[in-house]
Design a binder for these strands. Structure first.
Lengths: 165, 165
DNA sequence: CACTGTAACTTTCATTATGCAAGTTACAAG
DNA sequence: CTTGTAACTTGCATAATGAAAGTTACAGTG
């Protein structure tokens, strides 16, 4: 049964998930960030069926996150490289990984980030670019943006006072 | 065909996606962050089939992101409220929404964040908590963490020099 | 009292996606 | 020639999904 497309939703998250929201897609991107690029590398790393991997790589390529490049003419051989759009997905992967490490890793975080130059360990948090205010669910509100539509206005209008735990 | 579980993967992102990686799950969380809490509210907002919504709410509840609370005894009525673990997912949703808005919104961002107290618009970016170094794909490396396993070490060992675009 | 409407699901059924396993093609190497 | 490899493709059985109808437990109304 074909799952409902999010394409018609006026929502950044939904639009993003239309590109990356299928099972396996984000893990393929994880591996691309780790430097994997070839079909068999992804398949071995993930243990994914080849027909599923083909479909996912195609979808990620069509949506501009990966670039399918030829690396051998005879025989034709291809690799899949992150595009700039794909690389811009990095903060999503970092925050997702951090959440998973915090809440689900049984023996502490599996990985951590370090400054490439100094080797100093880093703890990623979300801040406002100019004021350096730490961004949390409790201290921000969501406003309509420049591209807001009636749908967005309606969605924001139906929200309620945030529930206190 | 039952899709492959990520449970056995030693990876924060995979563990996270085991909880939220099915179609609809993250959008349900989005709506929960916007204050929706009842079955019919989610269903109306998302246009999702009721059997799928039931399964997803159950899964999110079992995985500790939502709390199913009774709000009426006669008749029994329930609402779904974000837990602390659920609220900790906020940075993921923010970065995902930002990526979607930047790359896929046709007329600019659908929404933006604002400081709850001052109303000042915010631009979320990822920084290191102590040094305030901006975290980007280009300036960090991934290291084994305290919970790293053989699998993690192997995965990190197979990475290659990052490809230059 | 009966009827209606609502909330929160549950059930049924046909369609699509998935994993498994085998197969195909175009090479290079021996 | 055979063998091995990379990158898929194909066939098939199973699971997930959407659409639509149904069920239960009420409250409200006439």
């Amino acid at each position: 049964m074909k799952h409902t497309s999010y394409k018609a939703m006026d929502c950044g998250a939904a639009q993003a998930l239309e590109c990356v929201g299928e099972w396996w897609s984000i893990l393929i991107l994880r591996d691309a960030f780790l430097g994997l690029s070839r079909f068999d590398e992804f398949q071995t790393s993930l243990g994914i069926a080849s027909n599923s991997l083909t479909r996912r790589l195609k979808h990620l390529t069509e949506n501009g996150l990966l670039d399918r490049r030829i690396y051998s003419e005879r025989p034709k051989r291809y690799e899949y490289i992150l595009t700039e759009r794909g690389r811009d997905f990095f903060p999503v992967l970092v925050t997702l990984t951090k959440w998973g490490n915090q809440h689900l890793a049984p023996n502490g975080a599996y990985v951590q980030l370090a400054d490439r130059l100094t080797g100093k360990l880093l703890e990623p948090i979300l801040m406002d670019k100019s004021s350096l205010l730490k961004i949390t669910y409790e201290n921000v509100t969501v406003q309509p943006g420049p591209g807001a539509t009636e749908e967005v206005l309606a969605r924001l209008a139906t929200r309620k006072v945030k529930n206190e735990q």
